[in-house]
Amino acid sequence: MHKTEHKISNKGNVLFVSFVRFVILLSALVFALAPVYWMLTISFKTEGDQFASPPLWFSFTPTLEHYYDAFVTRAFGEYLLTSAIVAVTSTVLALVIGTLAAYALARFELPFKLNRRLSLWILSTRMFPAIVTAVPLFLMMRDLQLLNTRAALIIVHTSFNLPFVVWMMRGFFADLPRDLEEAALVDGDSRLGALVRVVLPLVSPGLAATAVFCLIVSWNEFLFALVLTQTDAAMTLPVGIAGRVTQYEIKWGVMSAAASVAIVPILVFALALQKYLVRGLSMGAVKG
C-alpha cells in the first residue's frame, strides 16, 4: 500500500484507488459524526418530530423549548455550574501539586533510584479500575460527612488528574536544557524563583495542553460523581443527564439538550488542541 503503488502504471487505476480512499474516509467521518448530529437534532425537535417515521435528518422546524426546560425550569443550569467549578478547581490543584512534583522528579537526583521508581508508582495509581477505589472512597466520604458536596468531588478529581499532570510535565521539564536554570541560580535566584520566572514560562504551551486535558477528563467524569453525589446540591452534568435516563418517563428532549451542552467545551478544545491530545491519549505509544 506504500510505494508499491508505483507498480501500477495506469494513471486511471491510481485515481480510482484515491477515490476509493476518499470514499472510505468520508464514510468513517459520517459514521463518527452522524450519531452525535442525530442527538443534536433531537434536542431541537418538538416531541412530535422526534417520533417521526421515517426519521427527520434535516427537514424539521427547530425549537428551543427543551433547552429552556432543562436549564431554566429544571436544575441543569446548576449541574453545569457544579461541573465547571469542580473541573476548574481540581485542574488548578492538580497542576500546582503535580508540576512541583514533576519538577522535583525531573531535576533533582534522588537516592535509591527514586526518580524512576516514584514516577512509575505515581503513574500506576492511574491504572486502577475506577470502581476499585470508588467503593472505599464512598465509605470514606460518608464517614467524613462529605457526601453530596462539591469538595469531595474536587478532592477526588484532583487525585486522579495528578498522575497525568506529573507524567506530562516531567517530560516537558526533562526536554528543557538545564543551563537556563543554572544561570538563574548563579544569578542569585532561589530554586523556586528559577522555576517560576525562568522554567514555567518556557513550558507554558505544555502546561496549557495538560490543563485542557485535565479539564476535559474532569468534565466527563461519571463514576465517582455518580457514587459521591445523589442530591442536586453537588450533582455534575453527566450524573444529571444519567438521572433522566433511569427514570420511568424519559424526557428525550431535555436529556439531549443537556447532553448537547455538555459536549460544547469538548468540541471547542478538541479542535484547538488535537495535536497534543493524540500524543497525550496514546501516552507515548509511538515512542514506546
Binding site: 543551563d179 543554572e182 544561570a183 548563579v186 544569578d187
Partner: peptide, 11 residues
Amino acid sequence: PTQHRDLAMVF
C-alpha cells in the same frame, strides 16, 4: 548553595 555564593557565570 549556588545562589548565595555571589559569583557570576558565562556559560
